[in-house]
Nucleic acid binder design. Structure first.
Lengths: 339, 339
DNA sequence: ATTTTTAGTGCAAACGTTTGAATTCGTTTT
DNA sequence: AAAACGAATTCAAACGTTTGCACTAAAAAT
């Protein structure tokens, strides 16, 4: 790297680095000629200020750490866009880490982010972390007083602020819609065990059944991963048995895609024989066949709010963690209603 | 931020910072007791080395800049995973920027990345940059001798290495497959004008037609964006006119999803009346209805190779830019063949 | 008893930049 | 002519860490 520095420029003009610094930053007490000569030369030589040295000096790196379990889901992509929308214009850069749902990687990345002195950390915790309930790495973040915002997947303990969707309500809405459409044998492709998200959506589903005096069938609740493939087996087993469900509520749109594939293969009509509701409102869902009824999760909005929350924490040196819970809404499409 | 530093520890034990540094880094000439006491204390106080100061000292930040036009497409997500797979284990962090296909944002982000002294930059250029053909921001990168790798979207000029899929070949394969399946009136939902990707896929399509003595119909070539929505209108107009195409080759899977929606609405059967081939092999395509025949783009592999290429450039102080072109392959599914 | 070795530690410079305080020098005021 | 001012610049310290070299003191070799 042959980087030209302020010192180089100072040497060239036989002046002190401070003069150069002031010239480049349009400071007040600087001779106009000096300023212009230096700025011109800096421009010509492609001088770029070294933000690293500034970070050291100012104790602020203008970088934000973002930690997510994966980036395969459009919901995550949208969340990241929401985050970017806030930070981009303020000159912050995003350092981006994927944990692959692993606790060890999450720990390691938190460590690195702290070591790199990011100004704040936004994190969607990994499945493993949720299961193990080991949050020691967040202790370190707190010790550093680095603003910490949990996005999308909340944790019960109080390690920082959080911005999440109201999963319980979303699940309730979805289930209620199915009941209103006449379904009584409603199966649930539930999320991975351990995650609060899964638990809340399951509870919303169960409570809604109960409130409508439908007794849940434990056979019709299967925990799966957040992907298409893992929905295949459970769905098959449901529809190969005697008593078939007449509706499926999926923990996200992806598992519904998987379920739909099984049903299509078995020539089971949607929504005539089986209604389906997902969760997330993926960009593809309105173009899937059948167009998927789903719960909109406001992914972009979650990212945006989380970013703003972290900025607020950053501006106050004595912040109180805050929980934001967004209300989801139902989008009705062909998988529950003939158009 | 109340960060404990090496100096703080030194003060505590009435020794010099150098001793602390050596203790923490398991240096050779250090008293065992001293080392252990210091390490213990550092651990207890949650000491985290300040990577910023190290970056300044070593002129290496252990960060990599990644610049992409968007993150909505699964192909981009997979590419990023490929990049991560290489850098994660080496302790590099990814600084992540999205340009929204805008030239100005691309410039701005490149500037910031340079200012932050990233060790290398991987970039998928924005549409606007491709159209304007203004690559001055990459001049700055070259001036700094920062390794630069173009991923996924190549540019003709020689500003750095590149890792791309053989778009021409992919398009040729797709078109050939359609012809072999009996189609003669093959329409093409082409990519945005200006992008090399679009141009190459269009050429592959045209050349394949020519080689099979099919004269192309310019009405059946429409430039669209890389999303579902923009495919709707063109497809509609094709199938509302007298002479309908009997096949569609889409510039990516998304536009095919859009085309499929139009055809379904018009009750046109796939593949009996119209065959469809996409490009990208999105994770959803095997579960779409109809399961989409497509060209696999090796997104993960592209990211992985690009990362490795940048590392290689990093290790040599006098690297020669290198172009890698990966061969895509056809995946046949229901949208061109009855199962 | 003297010299040499060695283990352990400290010193100081370096990385690039900013900034309050000090300094220079020319000009204006008394 | 002396004092005061003001514009332009320089000085020096600071941010946190590493590292070659110098230094001390004790142990080992002569």
């Amino acid at each position: 790297m042959n980087n030209i520095t302020i010192k180089d420029i100072a040497r060239k003009f036989k002046c002190s680095p401070s003069t150069v610094s002031r010239a480049l930053n349009d400071h007040s007490n600087i001779n106009v000629d000096t300023r212009e000569t230096i700025q011109e030369y800096a421009q010509k030589m492609g001088y770029q200020k070294n933000s690293i040295s500034l970070s050291l000096l100012n104790k602020s790196t203008k970088t934000i750490g973002v930690l997510v379990p994966s980036i395969n889901h459009s919901h995550e992509a949208q969340m990241i866009q929401g985050i970017q929308s806030v930070f981009d214009s303020l000159g912050y850069m995003l350092i981006f880490c994927v944990t692959n749902e692993l606790h060890s990687l999450e720990q390691e990345h938190i460590k690195r982010l702290l070591s790199n002195r990011v100004d704040a950390i936004l994190v969607s915790i990994s499945q493993e972390t949720a299961n193990l309930r080991d949050f020691s790495h967040f202790d370190m973040v707190n010790k550093r007083k680095t603003p910490l915002v949990f996005i999308d997947r909340d944790i019960v303990e109080n390690y920082g602020s959080s911005v999440v969707i109201d999963d319980y309500k979303g699940a309730y809405l979805a289930t209620k819609h199915l009941i209103e459409k006449g379904s009584r044998r409603i199966a649930h492709l539930a999320g991975p065990e351990g995650l609060l998200v899964s638990k809340l959506r399951l509870e919303g589903y169960l409570d809604c059944l109960k409130n409508h005096e439908i007794s849940p069938n434990t056979d019709w609740i299967k925990h799966v991963e957040f992907n298409i493939e893992s929905a295949i087996e459970p769905t098959k087993s449901w529809f190969e048995s005697e008593l078939r469900p007449d509706a499926i509520f999926g923990v996200n749109d992806y598992v519904c895609y998987g379920a739909v594939n099984v049903l299509m293969e078995m020539n089971i009509r949607i929504p005539e024989e089986v209604s389906i509701v997902g969760f997330d409102n993926c960009p593809i869902s309105p173009y899937f066949f059948p167009k998927l009824t789903t719960i909109d999760r406001k992914s972009f909005e979650i990212g945006r709010l989380a970013a703003q929350q972290s900025l607020e924490m950053l501006s106050k040196d004595d912040f109180v963690p805050e929980k934001s819970i967004l209300s989801p809404y139902l989008i009705i499409r062909d998988s529950t209603q003939l158009s």
